[in-house]
Computed example of a mutant assay.
Amino acid sequence: MSIWVTLEMTVEAGRFDALSAFLQQNLPNVRGFDGAFQVNLYYDPETRAFLLQEEWTSKQHHQAYLNFIQNAGVMDALLAFMEGAPEVTYYERMVM
């Protein structure tokens, strides 16, 4: 069974175009990481709210990915476009 992860952030004013270029370069790495099923991006230009919605095999797979990008400097590069750290939420699928 998979899990869903959301990362919510606010993009710094005037940084969206640079963020878009960064994401174009880095999203293939996320989508190809062990345990990743999908990554969807959403942006509200009025509030500069940015949402990553991801599906992973497990929370452990996602946390392994976070550790990898933290050690590789990718997380710091992403956060340079944001007004602070992301709010990360994990959701388990409900089967009813």
Score class of each variant (00 low, 15 high):
Asn67Pro: 07
Tyr43Asn: 02
Gln25Glu: 09
Tyr42Trp: 11
Asp34Tyr: 08
Tyr90Val: 06
Ala85Arg: 09
Tyr91Pro: 02
Arg93Met: 14
Val88Gln: 04
Trp56Gln: 04
Met82Glu: 00
Phe33Cys: 02
Glu54Gln: 10
Leu41Glu: 11
Val5Glu: 08
Leu79Pro: 00
Asn67Val: 06
Trp4Cys: 12
Val74Trp: 05
Arg93Leu: 13
Phe68Thr: 07
Phe50Arg: 03
Phe81Ala: 02
Phe16Ser: 09
Thr47Lys: 07
Ser58Glu: 04
Leu27Cys: 04
Gln38Asp: 14
Leu66Phe: 04
Tyr91Thr: 06
Asn40Met: 14
Thr57Val: 12
Arg93Tyr: 12
Ser58Gly: 03
Phe16Tyr: 13
Met94Asp: 10
Val88Ile: 13
Ala18Met: 03
Ala85Cys: 07
Ser58Tyr: 02
Gln38Arg: 14
Gly32Arg: 03
Leu78Trp: 06
Phe50Thr: 01
Met1Glu: 12
Ala77Cys: 05
Gln38Cys: 15
Phe68Pro: 03
Leu78Thr: 02
Gly35Met: 00
Phe68Tyr: 10
Gln53Cys: 14
Leu23His: 05
Glu92Pro: 06
Gln60Val: 09
Asn71Ser: 14
Glu83Asp: 12
His61Ser: 11
Asp76Ser: 10
Gln60Thr: 10
Trp56Val: 05
Lys59Phe: 06
Leu27Arg: 06
Val5Asn: 07
Thr47Pro: 02
Ser20Asn: 12
Val11Ile: 15
Val5Tyr: 08
Asn67Glu: 12
Asp76Asn: 11
Val39Ile: 13
Met82Leu: 05
Asn67Trp: 04
Glu12Asn: 12
Ala13Met: 14
Ser58Trp: 02
His61Glu: 07
Leu51Phe: 11
Asn67Leu: 10
Ala49Val: 12
Tyr42Leu: 09
Pro86Tyr: 01
Thr6Asp: 04
Gln38Gly: 15
Gln60Arg: 10
Gln38Pro: 11
Glu46Lys: 13
Leu7Cys: 09
Leu41Met: 09
Val88Phe: 04
Thr47Gln: 06
Gly84Val: 01
Asn29Lys: 15
Asn67Ala: 13
Ala49Leu: 12
Gly35Glu: 00
His62Ser: 01
Tyr42Thr: 11
Ala21Asp: 04
Gln53Ala: 15
Pro45Asn: 07
Val95His: 15
Ser58Gln: 00
Met9Leu: 11
Tyr42His: 13
Asn26Asp: 08
Leu19Arg: 01
Glu92Leu: 14
Leu7Gly: 07
Leu66Cys: 06
Glu83Lys: 13
Trp4Ala: 15
Val5Leu: 13
Phe81Ile: 03
Ala13Leu: 15
Ile69Trp: 00
Glu8Asn: 12
Ser20Lys: 12
Gln24Ser: 09
Gly14Leu: 08
Asp34Ala: 14
Ala36Glu: 04
Arg15Gln: 14
Gln25Leu: 07
Pro45Met: 07
Ala21Ile: 05
Gly32Phe: 01
Asn71Trp: 05
Gly73Val: 05
Tyr65Glu: 00
Val88Leu: 08
Gly35Trp: 00
Ala49Met: 11
Gly73Ser: 01
Ala64Phe: 06
Pro28His: 03
Ala36Met: 13
Glu87His: 08
